[in-house]
Design a protein around this nucleic acid. Structure first.
Lengths: 363, 363
DNA sequence: GCGCTCTACTAGCGCGCTCTAGTGATGAGA
DNA sequence: TCTCATCACTAGAGCGCGCTAGTAGAGCGC
């Protein structure tokens, strides 16, 4: 029984044995290959006794279905590709939520990371090469035309960014609502000069920027509208903080950052410059990624529910694959402002304190 | 369905055209399938003219080699699997470094994430199912026996954790050296009471713990040795900070955290309790993940070079696959202490200040 | 005996590709 | 003329599996 025949004719036991196949299981269990296939697909047509025997034998010889062969043989690969930015903590949260949902629906997940040295196209190419049936794009920054082209090939859902006029689903939060809540909160606390650090080409940025302007106008704060360029990274947050600090006189009392990462970078510089938050400056993020929860950061932010995003996104793609739906869907989730420790009433000493402290160096 | 060659043989829901195959390219280019295969594998035996024509046609019809079929047909899948913890910023750094190195060697990367709801075994299973030829395990917490078993099936390299006595390669830093540097730095600054927050079962933790004890003894600080339980998450950092704060009288003046994440959680609580860092308490992390660079954190930490880790790990696996080496290798990298803003001379007022400030609430 | 259904199983094609073993065609060397 | 080599290319056998179409046998009614 420890001698499966035919492996290495006349040779010694070989290092790194050939991976067992369905045929091996079938032979050893004394059934046909097709029967083993049935059992592993959990399809009807095998007796309970046989089923158990097959599983037992498979376990014994360490058989594991080969998903490459599976995909090849079946038209359905049952694989969904996920494009993410590996450093983005909100993406991390979503990936964690996606796995269980996909599994429940009977799909596997393939991850492909975009990074500064590996652009999103390349990452998507890898996914396509692996026969993904559908794609979940986490905050894609790809051009609309490219996304549209993808959408023609297979079901695609974009998380966090909506594409108008193309046949691609999207799941995102009502950016405008989140921004309105944040601005209303700040105004209520007494802020008037509220700046916004833009998210650049990042997902939702355009909507947030627009909503920021609208909300400010609604509160009669037209004169205080100020959009600072950024790109949803810590670096852009700290850069904009430096810009503001250099101005001294015109500093706003509150800042709505493009996302949590940006808010973190911003806070960094502000803290080190000796300003207190929220005493001198209130800061609001966007995402409620797990970083925002960290108590030494304790960031007020706009919550986007990753579980719900994942749930809907997977459902989007699966519905398309099942043919349940054949036109683009847009799911808009309700955002929710989470007020934590980085927002408070404006201190009247903000600029004063800063002016006396210089760049944090005593004179 | 009576349409064997048909467009839609009742298979998967199709959007647009059937995915083009090698046969389509061959027909359109007026050559054999085999020739197209040659061209795409960059194998010799095709004229430059034909080669160009094939590529042009492929481009035209949007052909993309199917890696499932490729893997199946070739014994070499040219795919390396990477196990990571999606929230770990140091893992993110390494993934970014792994992609280009693997590509250079002609390998694709498949990512599989472990998370609280998806354990490492499951993540590894997915990778194996996808025919990975080798595995890069980022800070695995799997039991040695399991890793050993994996190592018998395929080349495996463990990053950040070394397994003794089994046929598995590893790449990690000289933990002891990093710890010694950190302790020496703190001692030099004048600290005596230096505590260590343990990394639990995390990679390198045992070595760091041991090295911490040794280093303390070396400096004659036996009486100040103190290891606090932890697990390399922000949460454990903040929990231990609370433990220390509750003690008041016996608080150490410096803390060496199990990793950067732990240090961050720790700082959080300490800052919010009104202590100043490094005035009242110095903190050193471990990893030098990109979080440590953030200027508002500005964490003194022990640098582990992710690029170098990636380079060596990929080389490990590739060498094994090429048969260049057939016994376990261990690469030990030199760590380097990076002193930033969280370490400084011990303030003699640490406990006093805390005692007067209570829990951060004025009385 | 017939036809029918149901369960439990098997035969064998083909998914898209790689790769070995070829086939001509051309040219050099004897 | 006949090798022998080299080049550019092709035929066709699988890789491990899914899946359709089938079979064998039992049961059941007439």
């Amino acid at each position: 029984m420890p001698e499966p025949q035919g492996d290495t004719p006349g040779g010694p036991p070989r290092r790194g044995d050939r991976r067992p196949t369905m045929t091996d299981v079938a032979q050893r269990a004394g059934v046909s290959r097709a029967l083993v296939s049935l059992v592993f697909r959990d399809a009807p047509g095998a007796s309970t006794a046989t089923r158990e025997r097959v599983f037992r034998v498979a376990e014994e010889i360490g058989y594991r279905p080969d998903s490459a062969a599976r995909m090849l043989a079946s038209s359905r690969s049952k694989v969904l590709g996920v494009l993410l930015t590996v450093r983005n903590p909100f993406h991390a949260d979503m990936v964690e939520s996606i796995y269980p949902v996909a599994e429940e629906r009977g799909y596997e997940i393939l991850l492909s990371a975009a990074s500064p040295t590996r652009d999103e196209r390349k990452a998507v190419d890898a996914l396509l090469g692996h026969r993904c049936e559908g794609l979940l794009l986490l905050g894609p920054t790809l051009p609309t035309s490219y996304i549209a082209e993808l959408g023609r090939k297979l079901p695609v859902v974009s998380l966090g960014r909506h594409f108008r006029g193309i046949d691609v689903d999207s799941v995102h939060t009502a950016e405008a609502k989140g921004v309105r809540q944040a601005i209303a909160h700040l105004v209520e606390l007494g802020h008037r000069s509220i700046a916004h650090i833009d998210g650049g080409r990042g997902p939702g940025s355009a909507e947030r920027r627009k909503a920021y302007r609208a909300a400010m106008r609604k509160h009669g704060l037209d004169d205080y509208i100020r959009v600072l360029p950024g790109d949803q990274t810590e670096e852009s947050g700290s850069a904009m903080a430096n810009v503001l600090l250099a101005e001294r006189s015109a500093m706003p009392t509150a800042v709505l950052a493009g996302n949590d990462r940006c808010a973190l970078g911003f806070l960094d510089v502000v803290w080190r410059a000796g300003l207190s938050v929220p005493g001198d400056l209130s800061v609001v993020g966007y995402d409620d990624s797990h970083l925002a929860h960290l108590s030494h950061i304790d960031l007020s932010t706009v919550r986007q529910d990753p579980d719900r995003h994942a749930e809907l996104a997977v459902r989007c793609v699966v519905d398309r694959l099942d043919g349940t739906r054949d036109q683009a869907a847009e799911f808009v989730l309700e955002p929710k402002l989470v007020t934590r420790g980085t927002t408070g009433p404006p201190g009247r000493s903000g600029i004063m304190r800063f002016a006396s402290g210089g760049d944090g160096v005593e004179t």
